[in-house]
Design a protein around this nucleic acid. Sequence first.
DNA 1: TTGAAAGCGCTAACAG
DNA 2: CTGTTAGCGCTTTCAA
Lengths: 343, 343
Amino acid sequence: MGEKITIRDVAKHAGVSAASVSYVLNGINKVSDETKERILTAVKELNYEPNLTAVSLSKQKSNMIGVMFPLTDDSLSTIFKDNHYYSEMISGIEYVIRKHGYDLVISGASSPADCLKWIRTRNIDGLLFLGAFPHRLYEKMKALSNPIVLVDTYERYERDYHHISVDDEYGGYLATTHLVNLGHKEIAFVAHHLVNSPVDKKRYIGYEKALKEAGITPSKTFVFEVNESSFDNGYNLGNKLLQDHKDIRAVFASSDTLALGIMKALQEKGKKIPQDYSIVGFDDITFSSYASPSLTTIRQDVFNKGVVAATSVIQAIEHRFSTLQHVKLSVELIIRDSTAKRR
Amino acid sequence: MGEKITIRDVAKHAGVSAASVSYVLNGINKVSDETKERILTAVKELNYEPNLTAVSLSKQKSNMIGVMFPLTDDSLSTIFKDNHYYSEMISGIEYVIRKHGYDLVISGASSPADCLKWIRTRNIDGLLFLGAFPHRLYEKMKALSNPIVLVDTYERYERDYHHISVDDEYGGYLATTHLVNLGHKEIAFVAHHLVNSPVDKKRYIGYEKALKEAGITPSKTFVFEVNESSFDNGYNLGNKLLQDHKDIRAVFASSDTLALGIMKALQEKGKKIPQDYSIVGFDDITFSSYASPSLTTIRQDVFNKGVVAATSVIQAIEHRFSTLQHVKLSVELIIRDSTAKRR
DNA sequence: TTGAAAGCGCTAACAG
DNA sequence: CTGTTAGCGCTTTCAA
């Protein structure tokens, strides 16, 4: 751009003061209709666009909303890889944010300190925090005046922030009950990480509850952890199951990605699904209905989760004293071809 | 935050002027070591963090880099859905950008006008434009002084911007030649969109070239277009192929997602792959190796594409007069189990 | 080597 | 209703 047009240029062009231009642009009803016209014309003619950086500084509000991803290793790719989950979520978030005139700034949190720094230095109006929430950030974050929405975080702190989640426990319950109803007793639970992933912990609780209700004693030997939700990890676990755990006849995996990897391993070794093994996933990613056999799973509407989360921050930003939101979205059992009666 | 600490607080605390603090913080070597120490101590003690909005305004540089996604409909979800492609890319981009101390602002381009506006009003230092580049933006964008990197755009304008792509034409050629070498002659090409997707056009050229080299006359009846790269669209096309095009024995699809959808449809109707149909995809998404049968495909390193693109903008931002970059990354044929000799 | 002062572009009391 | 003015927090001449 050769020369940026400032509010003063507009003012001059319209023969008024910068203040009046500002009033008109901000919809502050202080200006006569006549001069308002003149100003709007000048804005058009000069093709003026306000400098948002200056606006931010002046208003102490950036109109930017940050999304912080949990960084496992150094890049986001481990998170996105094999995983429609965060992509879907960010779609929902971006959609709402743009509609409301905000911009979306994303960052992988390298360290809790960096994270905090980021919010403050960038003047982010609000923050969406996805996944596990580092304990040590808790106190410091609370000191910030900007609203923070935690998504999928179950911590003792959860009550102090806005919080969006899915009914993970019920999902685990649904999945397991489905298997139980099919006559299964030897049901493995495959988690991403039982301690680090609060979501998986909830699903596990549902799993346990379903077993107990059915009179089955949950056994630690039926619970497995992989490190990341990926096909590869599922695949490797599938092989491990075949070697070390011949008693298992059904698997409830904490993500479809994992479930599909497990399925692949079992099939490669000549096992039939659902005849030999019943498998249930979680999420209902698109591919689940395209796999052979198609995957029985717990569906959650991730796009909507993003929408709800983003809507929450924006509400919190705009009516500062709204009460804390705690939304738990529902899940649904989708029965497909990867589960069948125990034989 | 209760009270933000400003540069003046630090100055007072250290018994110097704000200017000196600024010098030290910006590494401008004008200050005696002694006062420098004092200032740094004060910074530590007060836990001072500069306000980046103010810095941006003052320096006329935001340290933010924008990524603009092509919006087909109104939300990003059509783009991310079923599509690891953009997720991978953004992972690569985010990685580089964060390492260099920039922030990543993302947006779906609602309209060319909005897009332009966005760059100017937000004081974005540089822009990554993914996918098709709206013609009418051309002139206006060129007027911007900020560097713009186009990814996957083949337009007549491409030469005026930095440009990162993959050797799509060679990819198309490799895939088709592979099928030809297996004895296939009736090879369909399934594109996302031949006109709107410049990438697909290139792949088509490679396809055509390979056919010609093999003495096969390309026929328009073997070329198909779907609207979006999705499993569903592939699936529907697969069914169409079965109904209307019984002569076809091999398919080269412009994305793995499409290829897997097609495969599913064919399999459902009792067709064997690769015995009855040979199928080649493009991208090498993770799931391709987990499908049954595993998918032969053209691999491109999308994460790296993001890395290269981001590196380019940053270079361009930091050494303003660097020459335009035009990078074409390589592709690779990955032979798996979805292709076999024609019988 | 240091600091005063004038911006960066916009907003918001406050006066008129 | 309109304009003057003093910031927002930081940078950067320019003079001391």
